[in-house]
């Protein structure tokens, strides 16, 4: 039996409750310091399986901009955030791009797609190549 106490800062409202959550064998058994149900639900997930939305950019060729912002369809496990960004760093798409287009279908086998979060038109006149480092 493993028993762990996690210190959590609740993000659900401006109160910002500082709470302690006690987890035993991967299950929340006790919470203190939280003052509402929304906060309790947040804290319970945050200590057992924290998740984050991931936003980053991918390279664009032949577009009016050099970068396309993309967003994960759903939150991904927190520990996979850096790997998702690393994966997307290697992706390149050709303009024109419409909002919502799937850029990566299933990132890292997590079952989460990444989509374009804006439209980018084709470059009017050939844009000068971008001096990427």
């Amino acid at each position: 039996m493993t028993r762990q106490t996690h210190a959590i800062l609740c993000i659900c409202c401006p109160t910002g409750c500082a709470a302690q959550v006690i987890v035993e064998d991967g299950r929340v058994i006790e919470q203190c310091g939280l003052t509402c149900e929304i906060g309790e639900a947040y804290a319970a997930e945050e200590v057992v399986a924290p998740k984050r939305m991931v936003t980053t950019t991918v390279r664009v060729t032949g577009g009016s901009l050099h970068l396309l912002p993309v967003v994960s369809e759903r939150p991904v496990p927190k520990e996979a955030v850096r790997d998702c960004v690393r994966l997307l760093r290697g992706v390149e798409v050709a303009a024109p791009i419409e909002t919502g287009r799937v850029i990566v279908d299933d990132a890292l086998g997590l079952g989460v797609a990444f989509r374009a979060t804006r439209a980018i038109s084709a470059a009017q006149s050939p844009a000068p190549p971008h001096p990427y480092p």
Partner: peptide, 19 residues
């Protein structure tokens, strides 16, 4: 502002800035 968190009250969902 490519991060998300925009539109929670206006559109009832979390959008990125460009969205």
């Amino acid at each position: 502002c490519i991060h998300n968190g925009f539109g929670l009250t206006r559109f009832n969902e979390e959008l990125t800035g460009p969205a």
